[in-house]
């Protein structure tokens, strides 16, 4: 009965794993040295755990089957203990733990975030519920979507403007908490190009679930292009097509209350200097809106502008009450900020 149940359970779960996927946030498919170090260690520990599991559960099953009460059997012998045996099952786990502890200590020091020589430094700042990225070396500020070069070490310096968050891009490596008043580090070198999903892993309030992040690992050409794009000035107002120009005006409009104005919170280089929300200078170059809450399409942007708290509960960006015309104009403008 027990075995059958176990088999059925196992089959069901394997089925469920097989049905799902691909798993873009899998910790078991590392794409950077940080993740690989952890993965190797985890697999090492995992097999010991499997061994212990099999031994203990088999013993349990054996005992249950072998020593079930049989009618007429004599009273069992009243054994009270056996020192040698007990020393044995104290020592064996101790040895296993040493075998786990040694590589653990080694990996702790390999993954402690010390920046390697020549690392690209990025300041990561957590906000409810989005990520700010500053590249001091490159003079770039962006949000939610981190671009890093493939093959070059990257060092993230993590801190928070409000509550505790945790930066986690599982395929690149482990998470580290993002804490106001402290600076933590993550260092990694990504070995393959691609987009890696992640999200905040420390409960940080109402929209914790919608604090996504994306790490774009770019080959050197793509990265250079991206950097150039981010450093370029946004288009000047007089070069904008008509609709986008009306969007630019709507963006600059001082609304009532003033905190409802776009420029109260957002920076567009040369236009505004708000710091409460993401920097929008190159908003058009991102793939998502509001930390992954919506795709960065005309439709996604419009939905966001129409009613942010509906898309992201508790959103600090309020429902401003923009007219559909204003929304269309703003979408056109933001999409041009590439």
């Amino acid at each position: 009965m027990r075995t059958l149940t176990a088999l059925a359970l196992g089959a069901l779960m394997l089925g469920a794993v097989a049905c799902g996927g691909p798993y873009p946030q899998s910790t078991l498919d590392p794409a950077a040295d940080f993740g690989s170090h952890i993965d190797e260690l985890f697999r090492w520990i995992f097999w010991f755990a499997v061994g212990v599991f099999v031994v203990v559960e088999s013993l349990l099953l054996f005992v249950v089957v072998r020593y079930r009460a049989r009618p007429g059997a004599p009273e069992p012998e009243r054994v009270h203990g056996n020192t040698l045996l007990e020393i044995g099952w104290t020592l064996v786990p101790a040895v296993i733990l040493i075998l786990i502890a040694a590589p653990t200590m080694q990996t702790i020091f390999r993954t402690d975030g010390t920046p390697p020589e020549g690392a690209l430094e990025v300041d990561v700042i957590g906000h409810q519920w989005w990520w700010e990225y500053n590249y001091p070396e490159l003079g770039i500020t962006t949000a939610n979507e981190l671009h890093v070069p493939q093959g070059r070490p990257v060092s993230l310096r993590l801190t928070s403007r409000d509550v505790i968050h945790s930066f986690w891009a599982p395929r690149l490596g482990g998470k580290r908490d993002v804490i106001a008043g402290r600076t933590n580090r993550i260092s990694f070198t990504a070995d393959s190009a691609g987009v890696f999903l992640g999200q905040c892993a420390e409960f940080c309030g109402e929209s914790h679930a919608k604090m996504g992040l994306r790490v774009f690992v770019d080959d050197s050409v793509t990265f250079t292009q991206w950097v150039a794009g981010q450093r370029a000035a946004p288009p000047s107002a007089d070069t904008l097509p008509d609709l986008a120009r009306r969007g630019w005006e709507a963006f600059r409009l001082i609304r009532d209350p003033a905190s409802n104005s776009c420029i109260a919170c957002h920076t567009v280089q040369g236009v505004s200097g708000g710091v409460l929300g993401p920097n929008l200078t190159h908003m058009g170059s991102r793939s998502t809106v509001a930390a992954g809450a919506l795709p960065n399409t005309a439709e996604g942007l419009a939905r966001w502008l129409r009613d942010p708290p509906a898309e992201k509960p508790g959103s600090k960006m309020p429902r401003i009450g923009l007219t559909e015309d204003e929304i269309a104009a703003l979408v056109a403008y933001l999409q041009l900020l590439r």
Binding site: T27, G35, H37, I38, L41, F42, I45, F46, A49, V52, F53, V56, E57, L60, L97, I100, T104, T107, I108, R110, T111, S166, W168, P170, G173, G174, K175, R176, A201, E202, F203
Partner: peptide, 24 residues
């Protein structure tokens, strides 16, 4: 039977690097 499983996963995140992927 079940506590053994909980104990073994406990040993896994007793290892800080592994825990960086498992905690939260």
């Amino acid at each position: 039977a079940m506590f053994v499983i909980g104990g073994l996963s406990g040993v896994m995140h007793a290892s800080p690097p592994a825990d960086l992927q498992q905690t939260d």
